[in-house]
Design a protein around this nucleic acid. Structure first.
Lengths: 199, 199
DNA sequence: CATTGACCTGGACATGTGTCCAGGTTATGT
DNA sequence: ACATAACCTGGACACATGTCCAGGTCAATG
């Protein structure tokens, strides 16, 4: 499991016909394409409009999908954005343990969505959502991050991991708020790790 | 200036009649009371309902204020929540420099809204908003936090402050996401500061 | 090719949100 | 006490959002 882009199960539809009909809950090929188009459209949409102006409907329109269909797979724009983040994260190749592995892992995570700030800010906001579907995804992301951090360094204790996680989330949030630029994140995170004597 | 609850100018109304009429932009006594009632109602509302279910209208209803009036002072629920956070922060007494000042400052900030998790999560979300009024407030909060951190420790360099800020925001966000409990924040932040050899 | 079930569409619907304004209420100065 | 301006109210309005359903389209199977 862990990192492959094949089996890293992205979100299941929250109510396609999966529970009413007798079909399985894993999306069909056709459904997977629709979902992928919606995810792509989300990124495009956020490149042009702030998260506040994005809606399921606007994304669906861009993806060439009927609103009702989009609502079948995603219950909120927050879920859409979090799903995009999760897909990027699970596609990110896992670095093998070395003396730079920790730094690479930190940077990789922080820079996942750094290419456009609007998407990044949307992720910061969306991942805090109360939506149960979002909660599932963000717990998944949290577990995967911790797993990768632990794998990247043999000398990280529990406190060290927690401290690094604080720094990462803090960095993402501050970048989302505009208090930091994404360019500085790598060196900033590196210096935090250095301060902690962990690298 | 700095910390007094009197002159720590909370948000001005975004369009009362301030710019069309010849009156000053600082709220009258009557307006201040209305605004305060709205802030109080926000806290009460969030104690019972999640941020997603809170609206300007629901807060106004609870405060005994007409929706149109509430909309006069706050353009979004995000602004309401951020204003509450800012008011608490500016009311928090500033600790005088000592060897525990840094820890007190960190804890004070992290625990500002820790009494009810719903308010805390709301703050995490609200402060990321695109709303210009929110941006003004969060920049204000960021500046004030940095000022207090620098004042609390004489040996903090620029990197140290940044690292601590990362940890604080990260802690608040993770607590907002439910990955951490608010009770652990003080000891966790203390251990981060310790790891950095700053305390 | 024909059929069947899964999938999608388009539009209707109830509900919520942000804005506006005409008129009533409260506070301030004369 | 009276007048005036500031403030608030209640309701109307246009618009967005989430849900539903009847019917059309697609793709796999016999």
């Amino acid at each position: 499991m862990s990192s492959s882009l094949i089996d890293s199960t992205p979100t299941r539809p929250h109510s396609p016909s999966a529970e009413t009909s007798h079909t399985t809950s894993v999306p069909s090929v056709r459904q997977a394409k629709t979902i992928q188009r919606l995810c792509d459209a989300t990124v495009e949409e956020l490149a042009e409009h702030p998260f506040e102006d994005m809606s399921i409907r606007s994304v669906a329109r861009r993806a060439g999908v009927a609103p009702a269909t989009a609502y079948t797979y995603f219950s909120s724009r927050e879920q859409l954005v979090t799903e995009v983040f999760w897909r990027r994260f699970s596609m990110l190749p896992e670095v093998e343990s070395s003396n730079q592995a920790l730094a690479s892992t930190l940077d990789g995570f922080a820079l996942l969505v750094a290419d456009d700030p609007s998407l990044a800010r949307a992720c910061s906001m969306a991942m805090l959502s109360h939506d149960p579907a979002v909660k599932t995804l963000r717990d998944q992301i949290g577990r995967e991050l911790r797993r990768r951090l632990m794998g990247a360094s043999t000398e990280l204790d529990s406190n060290g991991v927690r401290a690094l996680e604080l720094a990462i989330y803090g960095a993402l949030v501050q970048a989302g708020m505009g208090h930091l630029s994404y360019r500085e994140l790598p060196s900033l995170l590196a210096s935090v790790a250095a301060l902690m004597g962990q690298i």
